[in-house]
Design a protein around this nucleic acid. Sequence first.
DNA 1: ACACTTAACTAACACTTGTTAGTTTGTTTG
DNA 2: CAAACAAACTAACAAGTGTTAGTTAAGTGT
Lengths: 189, 189
Amino acid sequence: MKPETRQQEIIRVAAKLFKEKGYSAVTMRDLATAMDIKAASLYNHINSKQDILESIIISIAEQFTEGMSSVRESNATCIEKLKEIIALHVEVSSTNIYGMAALNHDWMHLEARLNYYKKLRSDYENDFRNILIEGIKAGEISDIKPDVMMFSILTTLRSLYLWIPKKEDVNLQELSSNLNEILIKGVIK
Amino acid sequence: MKPETRQQEIIRVAAKLFKEKGYSAVTMRDLATAMDIKAASLYNHINSKQDILESIIISIAEQFTEGMSSVRESNATCIEKLKEIIALHVEVSSTNIYGMAALNHDWMHLEARLNYYKKLRSDYENDFRNILIEGIKAGEISDIKPDVMMFSILTTLRSLYLWIPKKEDVNLQELSSNLNEILIKGVIK
DNA sequence: ACACTTAACTAACACTTGTTAGTTTGTTTG
DNA sequence: CAAACAAACTAACAAGTGTTAGTTAAGTGT
């Protein structure tokens, strides 16, 4: 593990601030203060505020795209695929807790790469929906509107970043299996 | 139904803009343009940008508090209470689609009433958690960590505003019953 | 005709925004 | 030692921020 560059450090700290107040409310002077330097000095390492947002969001979005592509190509059952997706979200969210906030809240502030982001997201959702449709056809999954199912599961998974850091004793393995239970079998006994 | 005052109109339009870009990214000049007047004219009707945010968020938060208080006092089974909560969210979200975005994304930009909002939210979550704990005790609900169950259900319900306006053919009754199925019984057949 | 209300306007304010230019300082490398 | 580099600095800019003050014009009720 090579040490973090100054640029990576800035992006990491920026993501943390973005999580607390959102992209628009965080100023370059806020970021500089958090880095304990002057705002102008940031520009020795990064090109623009917008570039920071892009780095954060696009890198995570691409991790999801890659992960989904593995799931798509596996030949497990649909329920197994769902479990893989849950594990993917727990993994990506827990390693990008701050970045996930920017992804969820500030994607609309992307400029040059907004359309690219939207494409990644809609491709991801299409893959997800297709897994559910397959599952319904195969009789594995309840015959409820796949969009409603997808929405329900995906919003829970997308909000994991809000949850994971809250409890210090949270075990990721356990969280993943609890979510498997709840999202797949529901809460009823 | 008495007609909307100019102030209510401004708040409604502001909520719509807040949903698209977030509180911090919406300027008073943006809002004025959307109202087809000059920024200074807004101040004939509202006291401050912050006041607008307060109106939007606090009024919705209080609707949830009231709704939860009805649920708490009903003597239905825990599963029935869960269904009532789902219906509450569908109801409040569908009548405050734009406001729900501000509630979810911009509550941290509240100033004077931030603590009041946080109190309402944590009381709400405590009531919710207690219902789940009761349900586990009574053997109605799976014995999984109540916090994880609550998180899972609540994030789905809190994100309904993202979903409801997407499909024009969405039937609220049907959405509610689909969510009952999915959140309570899961997706597995 | 009168005062009152509503709702817009112009002009300006003090401050904050992201960013650039040019410079300085300490550390690494040839 | 000299050259090169990394990473900070000060100073400044043009544009945009929320908001205030004071004014105007069109209805409304007496």
